[in-house]
Design a binder for these strands. Structure first.
Length: 376
RNA sequence: GGGGGGAUACCGAAGCGGUCAAACGGGGCAGACUGUAAAUCUGUUGGCUUAGCCUUCGGAGGUUCGAAUCCUCCUCCCCCCA
């Protein structure tokens, strides 16, 4: 994997760049649709590629390990071959599940003991087997196994957790060096900065992570309930330490506003379930604001879903029809909303990139944020 | 023709003398969702000048300090027998 920094904004820390993977080029800043179980929920891969214009999508180690299991994925020839997505794939390590499934797991020195949310069976995740699993998945970008801390988090707990994350990282890197990709193309490993909301921990972590000289670096443990200002503060702090010549990935973020503000802080890569999950629940994002398609006000609005949208669904269907689909709990409703939201997110990223290249990102962002966050 | 069972809020359905503006579902209305155990979850759902008041449990009367609950008549629906 190669990263080329093409331009840095004069007034902010926003950057435009390009990542080259063995599954294609990725122009940054980039938004990566989340495909936890090997599917971007509700959207065909053809549309993820051609209509949404995604360049890279996510997969999840924990979920794919439990089902269908690595035997099946390996028989398929890797995740790309299995799910029909031939673009780049980034796999999360399962570190987020250490946080989100905290009720069904136990940490020990070696790793994490999970209780499967599917059948209750016990499984151990270690830095080593998480790397092995990601080799079986064949993702272009593998994530280090980390512990995503909850918010709020006591300082001592955050520090203890950070030490574990750093120890696990060393083991991930060692394992990665000792093993080979399985499918004939290269895989990069991104380490993850943790440290909760504590400046000194974040600084120490960012320095530790930077010392590895990885192909790219991630910021984790944010957007877990802390105030947005704290999230931006930590992001800015960490971006100032992580190397300039490598992509920075802010994990799990966020709303269009969160993303634009974080681009300005120097982040290059984003992922978030909001466009798909909130879309399935009726929330639509547009360049003119956010609305809930389930609301009565759209009942007889026969205008297109999004007259300025880039997806075919924006023009083929009306708001009244989409509302009807949600009212009737028709599957197509969530599919349309997901595809629309993703297309909007990807459009927003292309625009941001273009304005960075044009040199007017700052003013464009100032104009755009109030627009995209308003409620319609 | 004979016998029996019902009618409760938008719908279905509990309640069978006071703690009932009335459980629970559905539907309606609104909210939440940030490296997805989520096509899920939460709130709300008679009216108003909202610590209270008014109207409401098929209709009309009655018993009672007090009735969705008991009695009488009426209207409509369902089941069984002929």
């Amino acid at each position: 994997m190669q990263f080329t920094l093409q331009k840095t904004d004069d007034k902010t820390s926003a950057r435009a760049g390009e990542i080259i993977t063995d599954h294609g080029k990725i122009q940054t800043p980039v938004f990566m649709p989340v495909g936890t179980a090997g599917t971007v929920k509700g959207v065909h891969m053809r549309d993820v590629k051609e209509d949404v214009k995604a360049q890279i999508i996510l997969g999840n180690t924990y979920h794919l390990y439990l089902r269908p299991g690595m035997k099946i994925i390996e028989q398929a020839g890797g995740l790309h071959r299995f799910n029909g997505w031939d673009g780049a794939i980034l796999t999360d390590s399962g570190g987020y599940q250490v946080y989100s499934l905290s009720g069904t797991r136990k940490l020990d020195e070696n790793g994490v003991l999970f209780r499967s949310h599917i059948d209750g069976s016990k499984h151990q995740f270690t830095p080593e087997n998480v790397i092995d699993t990601q080799h079986s998945l064949g993702s272009d970008i593998m994530m280090a196994f980390d512990e995503c801390t909850p918010y709020p988090c006591h300082y001592d707990d955050a520090k203890k957790s950070l030490d574990i994350t750093h120890k696990w990282l060393a083991r991930c890197v060692k394992r990665e060096e000792e093993t080979e990709p399985k499918y004939g193309y290269s895989q990069s490993l991104f380490p993850i900065v943790q440290g909760s909301t504590f400046r000194d921990l974040r600084i120490a972590s960012a320095e530790e992570i930077a010392s590895y000289g990885a192909d790219g670096n991630a910021i984790g443990g944010l957007s877990v309930g802390e105030p947005h200002e704290v999230m931006y503060e930590m992001t800015e702090l960490v971006c100032g330490i992580l190397p300039n010549d490598k992509p920075r990935y802010l994990m799990g973020v966020g709303t269009p506003e969160n993303i634009l503000k974080s681009i300005a802080l120097g982040v290059d890569m984003f992922d978030c379930v909001i466009p798909t999950r909130n879309g399935r629940n009726g929330m639509l994002f547009t360049k003119n604001g956010i609305f809930n398609i389930k609301n009565k006000k759209w009942e007889n609005d026969f205008n297109p879903v999004d007259p300025e949208g880039t997806s075919f669904v924006d023009h083929l269907y009306s708001r009244a029809y989409l509302r009807h689909l949600f009212s009737a709990r028709e599957l197509l409703g969530g599919m349309i909303a997901s595809q629309h939201n993703l297309a909007f997110y990807l459009w927003l990223m292309r625009e941001a990139r273009q304005h960075i290249l044009n040199g007017d990102f700052s003013s464009w962002k100032a104009m755009m944020i109030p627009r995209v966050k308003q409620r319609l």
